[in-house]
Design a protein around this nucleic acid. Structure first.
Lengths: 212, 212
DNA sequence: GTCTATAGCCTGATAGAC
DNA sequence: GTCTATCAGGCTATAGAC
C-alpha cells in the first residue's frame, strides 16, 4: 500500500493488480451512474454493487466506505471540469478564445452529463465536500481568467461586460443541458436539444461580445 | 375530513383550525428549508420537526408521511414558478416583454432561492415526482410562448434566435444564481452576486435580441 | 393535540468460511 | 478475492398515555 509501484516488478501480483484495477474502475463507473442520478444520500451501496456486478462486501473490499467512493469521484472531477477554461489562451484572438471555451464546455455537458449532475448535486447542497477546492483552485483560475478578459475589454477587442458574470453565464448555459436534461426533453418532445444548442449559444456570445 | 369547511361554522374548532393552519405552515416552511438544502433522501423527519419546533410524532399528526410533505411543497411550486412566463403579454413591445420576463425570473431566484433549489433537486434526479406536470402544463405554456416569439421574429421585432433555446437560456441564467449560489460566492468573495447580475443579463438579452 | 416509547425496516459495515 | 450471514445504528411511522 505504501508503494503501489512495487507490484509492477512482481509477476504474480501483477495479474491481481489488473483485476483490482478492473474492479475499481467498474465500481467507480457504477457509482458515477447511481450517485449522479440519485445523489449521495439517495444511493445505497447495494445499488452500486449491483451495477458493478459485485456483492456488497466485495465492493467494500476495494473501497473502505461509501463516502470514500464518492470522494474519489469528486476528487477527479474538478480538474477535468476546469480543463476547458485552463486552455483559454491569452495570445489567441479574444472572441475566438471565448467562443472556443464555450464550445468545449458545451461538448463536455454532452459527453459527460453524469459528471455534470454529480457536480450539480454537490453544489446545490452547499458544496459540503468540495467547498475548499472551489474557494482556492477554482477561485484562483477564475481570478486569472477574468483579469485576462478585462485586459481584452480595455484593448477594445471585446465589448464591455462584467467578466465574472460572463463566466457564470457560460457555466450555467452549458451545464443546464446536462443537469436539466429531463426538463428540456419534456418540453421539446422529439427534437434533440444538442442539435441547435451550439448554434444558439455561439450566436448569443458573438452578439454579446463583438466590439462595436 | 370530507368537508373541511364545516369547521368554519363551529366556534370551538375554529380556534384549533387556526392552530392547525399555523402548524401546517410552520412544517411546510421548515421542510422547504431542509429539503432544499439536503434533498428528499438527505432529509430526516426529525430535522423538519426540530426546525418547526414540533416533536416528530406531532409533525406526523399533521402530515401522514415525509413523502406527503414533499408532495405538498412541489404541488404548490410549479404554478409560482411559471407565473413570470405566463404574464408575458402578446400585445406588449416584444423586446421589453422578454426583458421584463427575464427581470421577474431573476427576482424570483433572489427572493425564493429555496424554491429554486427544491426544483433543481427534483429535476436533476430525473423529475420522478413532477415529470407529468413538466410534459403537460410546462410544455403547453412553452409551446404557446415560443409560437409568440416566432411571430415577433417574423415581424422583425426581434433578432432571429431559436425560441426554445432562448427560454432555456433564461431559465438557466436566472436559476443559476440561486442553485449555484455557493459556488458563485466562493469565487466572488466579498461582492454580492445580485449587485451586477441584473445589468449583465439585461445587456446580454438586449444585444442578443435587438433587431438590426 | 402533544408527548414518550417503541416497533420494524433499511442500510452501512464487519466477521469469518472458503 | 469473494461469498453468506449478521450486527449495529438510524430512520419512518405507529401505539398509547395524557
Amino acid at each position: 500500500m505504501s508503494d503501489p509501484n512495487r507490484f509492477q516488478i512482481m509477476p504474480a501480483p501483477q495479474k491481481s493488480t489488473r483485476i483490482q484495477q478492473k474492479n475499481r474502475a467498474a465500481i467507480l463507473e457504477a457509482a458515477l451512474d447511481v450517485f449522479s442520478a440519485q445523489g449521495f444520500r439517495g444511493t445505497t451501496i447495494d445499488q452500486i454493487a449491483a451495477a458493478a456486478n459485485l456483492s456488497k462486501p466485495n465492493l467494500l473490499y476495494y473501497f473502505p466506505s461509501k463516502e470514500a467512493i464518492h470522494a474519489t469521484l469528486l476528487a477527479g472531477l474538478l480538474d477535468t471540469w476546469l480543463a476547458p477554461l485552463r486552455t483559454m489562451n491569452p495570445k489567441g484572438d479574444p472572441l475566438e478564445e471565448i467562443l472556443g471555451y464555450v464550445r468545449r464546455k458545451l461538448q463536455m455537458s454532452r459527453d459527460y452529463p453524469r459528471e455534470s449532475r454529480l457536480f450539480a448535486h454537490e453544489v446545490v447542497q452547499g458544496a459540503p465536500r468540495i467547498y475548499h477546492a472551489l474557494s482556492t483552485d477554482l477561485k484562483s483560475l477564475v481570478d486569472e481568467k477574468t483579469t485576462l478578459i478585462e485586459t481584452w475589454i480595455k484593448q477594445e477587442k471585446l465589448a464591455p461586460v462584467h467578466p465574472y458574470h460572463l463566466l457564470f453565464s457560460i457555466w450555467s448555459l452549458t451545464q443546464h443541458y446536462a443537469d436539466f436534461d429531463v426538463q428540456i426533453r419534456a418540453v421539446m418532445d422529439a427534437e434533440d436539444p444538442f442539435t441547435n444548442a451550439p448554434d444558439f449559444i455561439d450566436t448569443l456570445y458573438r452578439r454579446l461580445l463583438t466590439p462595436t
